[in-house]
Design a protein around this nucleic acid. Structure first.
Lengths: 215, 215
DNA sequence: ACCTGAACACCGTTCAAGT
DNA sequence: ACCTGAACACCGTTCAAGT
């Protein structure tokens, strides 16, 4: 009956990917299924398999596409500034695709596009004069921080329905005043300042501060 | 037929939780289902619902149980040492339950047990003389770092089948020598040293160093 | 109170078949 | 080459029924 739908644009790898990303951002990662994607595309679920061999491959392609869209910093800039820019680009990407970011951040991206980005980050440490070992460790340390920060900022994980025994606000204020009072600084408006605080501490402590040369 | 199985221990909240954790660690989070858990317990899937109202509640109870088993540091110790101990306890817990940790780390734990732990961490900053705002931001910064580090260390996310276009090792070495060379420091044997490097940088930079008092 | 079995509305994917 | 439909082996959960 609907075996040919003239109003529907032809299926293609690209169209499937962009609709997939839109569906994930609108309905969430958990609700993303090949069947729902097909419905949105106006085709059968199985038609997708002609363009992507599996759901996992589809998501991997999406990772590649999103990573590939990130601009790399100008190599003529100083290493610390390049790192600041890389962090800003990364956080911007995470904020743009908050729900998909959970998948992207928690899966290995060993594609050419992913490695290109890793190389740009590692290059900053090398150019700042760190040894191979220092560079590798600093890369990891900064990566840990950036990963944790973006996961919190996108909030993908904390959105879920609050759990079985959510502590009532008045109890929280009475028994854990420190926790209650800290909440004021955990809102999105504070993300940038908090992120910068830790990021600058790390750059300085790792010998990347561009202002005062470490000796 | 199997409506009564005398060899099977009685079902209970505790037994369900401990088998659930064992199943998650042996087969992974994705493979964890109420049906498979029931099979392991020797009952019907629906029997679980008499003890936990849903799969999400069951997992939340598990979070609570694991968090509750973590020892809090002696308040008489110096704040920086308490933070070191809290980080060690946290990383130990993550390593003990690497697959469940992915769920624990990425879901809100606003139960009394979770808040108790948050309070212990925040107390370190307050006791070190930081202001409310400084404490809140330092808490967030250290938490970002710890979250990113443990997610990497448990490797829960990186275990998946390598993606669609894994870059071949020889290409990696030729085109991205920095990335290839850094790999040597990304192995489990290096986790402790790398973690400490960044953690100590943060403690010092945030004014928590117990050796030299920040002024 | 505790457990069961059938049923409902979903999944990802295989496979043979259509054009 | 591109798409379909039925089918398979799964999900979490509801509901009425058993003891």
């Amino acid at each position: 009956m609907t075996r040919f739908n003239p109003t529907r644009p032809a299926l293609s790898r690209e169209r499937i990917l962009s609709e997939a990303l839109a569906l994930i951002e609108s309905d969430g990662l958990d609700a993303f299924s090949t069947r729902r994607l097909a419905q949105r595309l106006g085709c059968e679920a199985m038609s997708l398999y002609h363009h992507h061999p599996s759901k996992a491959h589809l998501l991997d392609s999406l990772v590649d596409q999103v990573l590939g869209a990130m601009p790399l910093p100008d190599p003529s800039q100083r290493p610390a500034d390049r790192l600041r820019q890389l962090a800003a680009t990364w956080r911007h990407m995470a904020r743009r695709h908050p729900r998909f970011y959970l998948w992207l951040a928690l899966h290995r991206w060993n594609s050419a596009t992913g490695v290109r980005f890793l190389g740009a980050v590692l290059g900053c440490f090398a150019d700042a004069g760190l040894s191979r070992e220092q560079s590798a460790r600093a890369f990891r340390v900064v990566g840990y921080y950036l990963l944790g920060a973006t996961l919190d900022e996108t909030g993908g994980y904390a959105q879920g329905p609050s759990s079985l025994n959510p502590i009532p606000l008045d109890v929280l204020q009475r028994e854990h005043p420190l926790v209650a009072q800290a909440g004021e600084f955990f809102v999105p408006e504070q993300f940038d300042r908090t992120f910068e605080l830790g990021f600058e501490v790390l750059l300085r402590g790792l010998g990347l501060d561009s202002g005062t040369s470490p000796d």
